[in-house]
Design a protein around this nucleic acid. Structure first.
Lengths: 205, 205
DNA sequence: TCCTGTGAACTTGTTCACAGCT
DNA sequence: AGCTGTGAACAAGTTCACAGGA
């Protein structure tokens, strides 16, 4: 049992992929899946999958594979997605409102509880059931113990939003702007800049 | 000179980051930048940056650093972003329309020339200057030599869109749905599933 | 002196082969 | 027999130390 080995960062990045595949399999009423079967959904080879999972424990059944439902529970627990993760969204422009209505987040345990914007014309309006609040009141989220935030503002304001979020106790940020965010070491930032994601594709053509 | 070494995939992924930083520096009228200076914008250490750039040639000036403008040109050339990359967007829902108006793509050389959707109510309407076309006419893009596509449809339709795109000659796809896309080996797919990007953040809290 | 360019050492991550359980 | 779990071999990527030019 390898539970006490250090888990590679790359393994952590792959765990949500396994979760996604397993959720899909459950929907298809699949009860058991082998590492070979899973490999068709995540484009990784079977030993890689087995090794990744084995860092956290021995979840499989030799001769049979992995039981889908319990494995979903385990991965959710490992990634801390078994408890509802309160999430705040800053920026209610086009991208922000697309995000706010995105069904995928719920399925992973993320619950967008607050939406903020700085534009007067948007404040007070609703996206779904959530009323857009003034970004000046971001400090209020502290009492709410929100740890995760999504920034979907113009890049120019991203840093000041990040500062306010950190001050309010947020520890993880998904940055959807092209701005580089300077934050304290304890705060985790994942930046997804769509233009940059496209940027590497032509190289291989 | 290392130009004939194999370039690591990880290096390619970082090149757009360097480009982004350099574009920012140019905007600040910075003429020269050292690897140390760049490292503050991309969160990588200086030797890593020097090594990455050296895979493609010796662009630096010993004692001085890199000249911003020529390095931008070089990276654009390396990534094939110096020629306009015609790009087609499929899916004109909330996310799609946010993408279509996204200013970042232009700056990287991507020019969205066509937008497709399958919803009758959207076809014919305009986003900016581009009229939304019926997705059934996707095959038309072949004559236009579009090589890059962005899929921002619901996940259920993503695979059939991908099939049509491949048939129409597209070689690179940015998949913004949660669907796994099966494509021929020569076609490059980059999937960005925002829920998955969020998924790994709570682990580290 | 300052900073780049790079071979070599080192670290991290992946693949393999097979032991071991069902 | 079939499939997992994992140490060990292997591959890829990163860091370092320093040679060499401005």
């Amino acid at each position: 049992m390898m539970r006490y080995h250090k888990v590679p960062e790359e393994t952590i990045k792959r765990m949500p992929q396994y979760l996604r595949a397993l959720l899909f399999l459950r929907q298809q009423s699949t009860k058991y899946i082998t590492s070979r079967g899973l490999s068709e959904y995540v484009l990784l080879n079977p030993p890689q999958i087995r090794k990744d999972l084995s860092y956290f424990g021995a979840f499989g059944l030799r001769g049979t594979g992995y039981e889908v439902e319990p494995l979903i529970k385990q991965i959710r627990r490992i990634l801390k997605l078994d408890v509802e993760q309160k999430t705040v969204l800053v920026g209610a422009g086009r991208l922000g409102s697309a995000i706010a209505r995105f069904p995928g987040f719920q399925r992973y345990g993320f619950n967008i509880t607050d939406i903020y914007d700085n534009a007067g014309k948007r404040i007070g309006k609703k996206i779904g059931k959530i009323q857009i609040k003034d970004v000046a009141k971001l400090n209020k989220i502290k009492a709410n113990s929100v740890k995760i935030a999504i920034i979907a503002t113009p890049p120019e304001t991203a840093q000041q939003i990040a500062d306010a979020l950190v001050k309010a106790g947020v520890t993880s940020i998904l940055n959807l702007t092209s701005a580089y965010l300077a934050v304290p070491k304890k705060v985790r930032v994942r930046t997804v800049d769509l233009a940059m994601e496209l940027g590497m594709l032509p190289y291989y053509t």
